Simulated scan of single mutants.
Amino acid sequence: MAMAKIKKGDTVVLLVGPKEQRGRTGEVLKVLPKENKVVVSGLKLAKRHRKPTQDNPQGGIDTFEAPIHISNVALADPKTGKATRVKIVADKDGKKSRVAAKSGEKISG
């Protein structure tokens, strides 16, 4: 079984997008492995105009987090908070864990 490099609950850094968006961090809310996308809180907010329905008689504009391709985010280093790659390291017992490539810090989860 392959170990995922980015999981739900991880803090990630946005690598692409407009200058004011780049470098922002957020927590992963959902991972969509079949589409290679993640949903991150507070990043890539989209708006959808909704017509009034029986469930939502008011209608209006919904704001929600849209999925981002996984290649456009990087895990935040637990030590510095900057973007880092992830290494998967096995300990003496053969148990695998995720480690930040820049600082060598163990990533929780």
Rank of each mutant, 00 (worst) to 15 (best):
A2V: 15
A4I: 02
A4R: 15
K7P: 00
K8D: 03
K8H: 01
D10G: 03
D10L: 02
L14I: 05
L15M: 15
L15S: 10
G17H: 04
P18D: 11
K19C: 03
E20W: 05
Q21H: 10
Q21T: 01
R24L: 10
V28Q: 02
V31Y: 09
V31E: 06
L32F: 05
L32G: 00
N36A: 12
N36Q: 12
S41W: 04
G42D: 01
L43F: 03
L45N: 12
A46V: 05
A46P: 00
H49S: 14
H49K: 15
R50W: 11
R50M: 14
R50E: 09
K51F: 12
T53E: 09
N56H: 11
P57G: 11
D62P: 00
F64W: 05
I68N: 05
H69A: 07
I70N: 10
S71E: 11
N72T: 05
L75A: 00
A76V: 00
D77F: 09
K79Y: 06
T80S: 14
T80W: 06
V86A: 02
K87W: 10
K87V: 03
K87E: 09
V89I: 15
V89K: 13
V89N: 07
K92Q: 15
D93E: 13
D93Q: 13
K95M: 10
S97T: 04
R98N: 06
A100I: 07
K102T: 12
K106D: 01
I107T: 07
